[in-house]
Computed example of a mutant assay.
Amino acid sequence: MPNAYSRAMKAHEDTNEGIRLQKLLAQAGFGSRRKCEEMITDGRVEVDGELVTELGTRVDPAHHQIRVDGSRVHLNPNHVTLALNKPKKVLSTMDDPKGRFTLADIIGDKYDRVFHMGRLDYDSEGLILMTNDGELSQHVMHPRYEVEKTYIATLQGKIGGNVCRRLVTQGVQLDDGLIRLDHCAIIDSNRDTTIVKVVLHSGKNRIVRRIFGAIGFPVKRLVRTQIGPIKLGDLKPGSYRVLSQVEVRSLQKAVGL
């Protein structure tokens, strides 16, 4: 006797409803249509807990649960995720009672219920991710998933490579605990200034400024260039772009969705 999924599939095929599974996977960022067909025939795709290897199978993403290699496929046409380049003197909020410039002034009212995932302080610049996908936002911001963040920091004073190595291997003790960088590299330096690239998982408030301030090298400029797999790239300050399905999928994968 056919199970509920098989009956549902036959109903879709009989009425030509739904969307072909390989097309849906391609739209969700799993690669070209041909690559998605190979994933299906290789036995990597499940629909409602049942392995599907037949090409041409139609599904309804609103009613069927689809998994690839055990991971849930998320595809909601109402969800949007943005990458925004925050300039200095912009608040990482959607509203300010004092009338200061906010993220909402950059994106306008084109997207409904979009909110920022994490913050940058008032004087810092760079990448902020925004979405109306509550599940994605929760995972990106939760400390449990340890999303890597990359910054370019301009420091007051000249530091040596030994300082970078110490921040990675030993870390620095702050008021709220010991913190270590995942990576630290000097990009350029002169007598008065050092530019470093740093990578860390912590999302604590003003963490990069606090780390270098604690060892006597105040941050003069701070730009976040990457969050997980999403890069700032050549996005101009005060502008934003919509992430592709491939980018959204890579971000979902990075945070365990």
Rank of each mutant, 00 (worst) to 15 (best):
D60Q: 09
C164K: 02
P61I: 01
V90T: 11
A185W: 03
D175C: 00
T93E: 10
A83Y: 02
L251W: 03
G126K: 06
T193W: 00
T57L: 02
R224F: 07
K236D: 13
S71H: 14
I215F: 07
R72D: 13
T150V: 15
T57I: 00
V168G: 05
G99R: 01
G160D: 14
L222S: 01
S71P: 00
R221E: 13
D95G: 11
Y151W: 03
H74I: 13
I207H: 02
T193P: 04
R7T: 15
G213T: 05
K86H: 04
S71C: 09
T57R: 07
V172T: 14
G29A: 03
L51Q: 12
G160L: 00
P87C: 03
G29M: 01
V90F: 01
E46W: 13
P143F: 13
L167R: 01
G99T: 06
Y111Q: 04
N16T: 10
G238E: 09
F212G: 02
E46S: 12
L103S: 07
I128R: 02
N132Y: 08
A153E: 11
Q27A: 13
H74P: 07
A83E: 05
E54C: 05
R166F: 10
R119M: 08
L222F: 06
H79T: 10
S32C: 06
I107M: 03
T102R: 02
E50V: 12
M1Q: 13
E146R: 14
V219M: 02
V114I: 10
A185P: 00
N3A: 05
D69Y: 06
Q156V: 14
M1Y: 09
L251Y: 08
V199G: 08
S239W: 14
E125R: 05
F212L: 06
T102E: 05
R119F: 04
I187T: 03
G256M: 00
R221H: 13
V90E: 04
K253M: 12
G108F: 08
L120K: 01
L181T: 03
L181A: 12
D176N: 15
V140C: 05
D105N: 15
I106D: 07
M1T: 15
T15N: 14
L91K: 09
Y122Q: 11
G228F: 02
D69I: 08
C164S: 11
L232F: 12
V242S: 13
P143C: 09
G160V: 06
R210H: 10
V114Q: 08
G238K: 07
P218S: 05
P61E: 06
